[in-house]
Computed example of a mutant assay.
Amino acid sequence: MKKVIGLLTAVGLMTAPLVQASTVTVSGSTSVAHVMEVLAENYQNTTNKSVEVQGTGSSAGIRAAKDGTSMIGMSSRNIKPNELTPKTKEIVIARDGIAAAVNKANPVKDLTQEQISKIYRGEIKNWSEVGGEARPIVVVTRENGSGTRGAFEEIMDLQRSVNGHTVTAITTSAQVGNGNGMIKTMVANNPYAIGYISLGSVDDSLNALSVNGVAATDNNIAAGDYQIARPFIALMNDDAPATAKSFIEYIMSEDGQRIVAEEGYIRVQ
């Protein structure tokens, strides 16, 4: 009996890696994960091939692709040269705007980029300074390592150098939320809050501000008129399994890009 159990265990150990290898693993940006999960579901329904998507943050996704702990990494910020190896490739699968969002009760509908930057630096502290009520502004930001935060800081000039190191210039009094969902909840529940989220995650629970008089819309991003925008990037090593490469091919196909557009993002093909 012991020999039979031992044989079955050995067979299980030999087949387990094969099962795992057939599953495409994807991890990284929670913003990219939103559309990636829909792409994965449709891909699975079409091909009967398994895809697992985990939202772990852009920095974690970049590392996962680099060291091979995930077949595909996801980033919603530009990637620094020292974060990749020569065999790691970047594929822009979509483009997305970052919406500066306020509570639906807030009368402010438009801000300049400079005003938003000053709010996040803590230089503008009251809504009355930008045409709103005489109430303190509650600044809400994403967590460190978030691709949305990294892109927002870069675009909005919210970084500074300290002893040769680049650090955030966002006010230390800012409240921090993990993920687009938490930011939406925090802003929706506070009439004096301002946050930033992926444009594809905007819904009726809050208002996306116009910036420099330009509405945060797909058409304005595609035309280059709305400036707070960033790429959605998939990362994959040259030696990634064929199953992972097939999934990327699907994402870049007409069907995949149609889903990208249906989910509120800008297609790249």
Rank of each mutant, 00 (worst) to 15 (best):
K80C: 09
T47M: 11
N48L: 06
K80F: 12
I93S: 00
S70R: 06
G61S: 10
D67N: 15
S70N: 12
L84I: 14
I91C: 02
A65C: 08
S75Y: 08
P86M: 12
V102D: 00
V92M: 09
G57A: 05
A60P: 04
V53H: 00
T56D: 03
T88M: 12
M71W: 08
K49W: 03
P86N: 13
M74L: 15
G55W: 04
I79V: 15
A64R: 05
K66A: 14
V92R: 03
I62R: 06
T88S: 05
G55C: 05
T47Y: 04
V51S: 02
A101V: 01
T85A: 02
K80L: 14
V53I: 09
S50E: 12
N45Q: 10
Q44I: 03
R95A: 01
R63V: 15
I62E: 03
K80Y: 15
T85I: 08
K89N: 10
G57T: 06
G57N: 09
T46A: 13
I72P: 08
S76D: 13
A64C: 10
S75F: 09
G61T: 11
I98E: 08
P86D: 07
M71P: 04
I98G: 00
S58T: 14
E52Y: 10
A101S: 02
G55N: 04
T56L: 07
V92Q: 11
S70P: 11
I91P: 00
T88D: 06
A65R: 07
E83H: 10
A65E: 14
K66M: 14
T69Q: 03
S50G: 03
S76Y: 10
I93Y: 00
G57K: 07
A94I: 05
E52S: 14
D67A: 14
A101M: 00
T47D: 04
I72L: 09
E52W: 09
V92L: 07
K87F: 13
Q44Y: 02
M71I: 10
S58R: 02
I91N: 02
I72G: 01
V102C: 00
G73F: 13
T47I: 07
A101K: 01
V102W: 01
K49V: 11
T85R: 13
A64H: 06
R95Y: 09
E52K: 11
G57V: 03
T46E: 15
R95L: 09
V53L: 02
I79P: 02
I98A: 04
P81I: 14
R95S: 04
V51Y: 00
S58L: 13
M71K: 02
S75C: 13
S76E: 13
R77Q: 15
M71G: 06
N45L: 12
I91S: 02
A65T: 10
T47A: 07
V92P: 01
A94T: 02
S50H: 06
S76I: 15
D67P: 11
E90M: 14
E83Y: 13
A100C: 03
K49E: 14
K66W: 07
E52D: 14
P86L: 11
P86G: 09
N45C: 02
T46C: 06
I98N: 00
A64V: 07
M74C: 13
K66T: 15
S58E: 03
G57Y: 11
N45P: 00
N48D: 11
